Simulated assay, not measured.
Amino acid sequence: MKKEIHPKYKKMIINCACGNIINIFSTLNKKNLNVDVCFKCHPFYTGKQRVISQGGRIEQFNKKFSIV
């Protein structure tokens, strides 16, 4: 196996806009990373997700013109 071909694996701190701090290891050459959403504030993970079911074009046409 060749030596010195793999990237360095360093500790990294992720700061979320909600104030959550996550410590991970990564191959990125950054010490800190700022994100807008994380698993503690994202609607999918918190259960506050809205379900939008609009249907396709045919369903919308049938609903609009009352054709069943």
Score class of each variant (00 low, 15 high):
4 E>H: 07
5 I>S: 06
5 I>T: 08
7 P>Y: 01
7 P>V: 01
8 K>H: 09
8 K>D: 14
9 Y>H: 09
9 Y>D: 15
10 K>F: 02
10 K>A: 12
10 K>L: 03
10 K>E: 12
11 K>D: 13
11 K>H: 13
12 M>H: 02
13 I>K: 10
13 I>W: 09
15 N>M: 06
18 C>M: 04
21 I>M: 08
23 N>Q: 12
24 I>F: 06
24 I>Y: 09
24 I>L: 12
25 F>I: 02
25 F>E: 14
25 F>W: 10
26 S>Y: 02
27 T>A: 14
29 N>F: 01
30 K>T: 04
31 K>A: 10
31 K>F: 04
31 K>N: 14
33 L>M: 14
33 L>I: 07
35 V>T: 14
35 V>K: 10
35 V>M: 08
37 V>G: 06
38 C>H: 01
39 F>Q: 05
40 K>C: 14
40 K>L: 10
40 K>Y: 02
40 K>F: 00
41 C>M: 14
42 H>M: 02
43 P>D: 09
44 F>R: 10
45 Y>F: 11
45 Y>N: 13
45 Y>T: 11
47 G>R: 03
48 K>E: 12
48 K>Y: 00
49 Q>E: 12
49 Q>T: 05
50 R>C: 09
50 R>A: 15
51 V>A: 08
53 S>G: 13
53 S>W: 03
54 Q>V: 07
55 G>S: 10
58 I>A: 12
59 E>M: 13
59 E>L: 12
60 Q>E: 14
63 K>F: 00
63 K>A: 13
65 F>I: 01
65 F>R: 06
66 S>R: 06
66 S>Y: 02
67 I>V: 11
